[in-house]
Design a protein around this nucleic acid. Structure first.
Lengths: 119, 119
DNA sequence: CTAGAAGTTGACACCCATGTCAGATTCAAG
DNA sequence: CTTGAATCTGACATGGGTGTCAACTTCTAG
């Protein structure tokens, strides 16, 4: 599929898709004229990338991580180096802290909302 | 206490504390010479502010929210307007989505980490 | 062949909390 | 007083993903 359809189906702007490619997160074939051509699996990949971005990972971390992921198409995954594993473990810890923060903030919001609705 | 101590105790930079004040998130008394003076409760407040920032709320939302929060010192809380309540409900939904994303990302990381450690 | 939709690259702007630097002032201890 | 640490204000920079515009090229339906 082409970039417009991929953008529509993932909800990610064309701008961002091109950016992902420049960062080495998303590969694409090209038509003879130079237009990008994506396989079906690109949809899942883009969604995954977005999630990781939302989780606060940088493009370079994601770029290292992606080849080690079990793809939707069950492609052969590279195996993470020990160095990468420890970096990922740190990210995991960061995510845990982030989740804890979010739970607290949600509770804070709930208190205010409940107080306002309560009377 | 003064800004240096508050920064040390909260782990938030002096720069950010001054920024919070300019955004109306954090009040301070002043010494005759103009140095900021914070009450003990400022520590909790700053931590709360940081959590809300981490949860993706903007300073202006936080500024609206703070007066409605039950403070650590049990101060009198303002009551949120219906308009604010609905904005907060949206934020709450956003936080829920964010948590769901984080859980997925954490799982992704775990898969890669486990695969690398597994052999 | 042709028109209009869709795609390409490159450059510039923005957000917005935070870092950092400079120069001046205040505080607190000797 | 004096001196060094702490604080003040203001200004500029940064990161990093995304928006947007411009000028051009390619694709595709008729």
């Amino acid at each position: 599929m082409r970039i417009g359809e991929l953008a529509r189906r993932t909800g990610v702007s064309e701008r961002s898709l091109r950016y992902y490619e420049k960062q080495g997160l998303l590969a694409s074939g090209r038509t003879p004229g130079g237009h990008r051509e994506y396989p079906e699996a690109a949809v899942d990949r883009v969604v995954r990338i977005q999630e990781l971005f939302a989780a606060g990972l940088s493009s370079s971390k994601i770029a290292q991580l992606l080849p080690c992921m079990r793809d939707a198409d069950g492609g052969p995954s590279a195996v993470a180096t020990p160095r990468l594993v420890s970096a990922l473990a740190e990210e995991r810890a960061r995510i845990d802290r982030m989740i804890a923060d979010l739970l607290r903030s949600r509770e804070t919001l709930d208190e205010v909302i409940d107080a306002a609705r309560g009377r």
